[in-house]
Design a protein around this nucleic acid. Sequence first.
DNA 1: GTCTATAGATTGATAGAC
DNA 2: GTCTATCAATCTATAGAC
Lengths: 211, 211
Amino acid sequence: MARTQDQRKAETRARLLDAAARLFAVQGIDAVSVDAVADAAGRTSGSIYAHFGSKDALVTAVLDEWKDQVAAVVAAAFEAARDLPTRLDALWASFVDPPDSLGESWVLLEHELWARAVRDPVLREQLAARYANARAAMAVRYDDESDDVDSPASPLDTATLLLALLLGLEMQRRLDPAAVTDDVAVTGLLALLGARRPVESAPTNDGEGSP
Amino acid sequence: MARTQDQRKAETRARLLDAAARLFAVQGIDAVSVDAVADAAGRTSGSIYAHFGSKDALVTAVLDEWKDQVAAVVAAAFEAARDLPTRLDALWASFVDPPDSLGESWVLLEHELWARAVRDPVLREQLAARYANARAAMAVRYDDESDDVDSPASPLDTATLLLALLLGLEMQRRLDPAAVTDDVAVTGLLALLGARRPVESAPTNDGEGSP
DNA sequence: GTCTATAGATTGATAGAC
DNA sequence: GTCTATCAATCTATAGAC
């Protein structure tokens, strides 16, 4: 029956990681107790210490579990459509309205991890590698398109700029959704690639979101 | 002697706010106890409750105290130089290497406040207004330059894009300084304004920062 | 308004049974 | 490996003296 026990062990680990990721994203890591994670996973706090040893180690494990998450998201967005504006729109959509495969608010979890990483050298190196992966994935994808565009920077640098714009726009959108329309996002991404929007000019947005 | 007492009261409030802002930025809000703030300000925890009533109210007060901080930073950066690339470089510098007037790591404090704001409607409205101010300030400044550039979006939308790029680049730079050079930043900002870099082409950065 | 002392609650982590 | 019970530390907030 070792098979069954291994299965249960693996399932417990998976459930703990899943519950932790979801709760961390929604409430913030510091606001979530070890017991809360265990409860949400249908286990007890003891199992967390058996599997991970500490809450910090659990955070590290969550970060590690979704290792190539950002890179995968980026890659998937580019698969979807053919023309550049549509692809960039899909890329932006994966930040704003994520696929079910990731949690609904995976970007919030990224910010939680970032906030810890900038203060913890070990976490920082982990997360830095993740972002480097994401940039590399974008650079490759963007390379396929390179005949269509005329970017002012190298592919990797352009990926850095695209990722930056996505992160910064999503931050502002969380505070004030009306301030960041999809059209503005795509227009900005296109501008970083040295490309202009084709025919139909994007609607402008001079009225601000907040009253 | 009411004068002296009022002075002491005001000074205590100022010291508490200053200590709180600094500690919150460096250690993260949740990692800083009320006692720690009071100690750093040379007072005791009781004074914090006399002045603010709760730790959450202290956070709100910190956010409120630096109300137009981001807008002021943005405005100041544009005053510095005349030609566009130099101005954009100054703008980027205010994020990377802030003036002494702000704390050295005011951007970290902004992220701390953001992380709370996305989960608290009251804080969110406050911070949204602050960002709207910053965008408006940038839009005005950028308007002065509008003959030099050919932005693909409205002034306000362009400000949104510029702010997004600054935020996102700074995030990546905190994780991996080598991945985001000053030249890439300025190149990106210029691209969002529809302008290319003049004569001297920017050094590329194809080797990634992390080993 | 400021300080001291302390209540009240929560949390991360450990020990031991099964 | 998982659970129950519990310890020890920490933190927010309050009460009362000055």
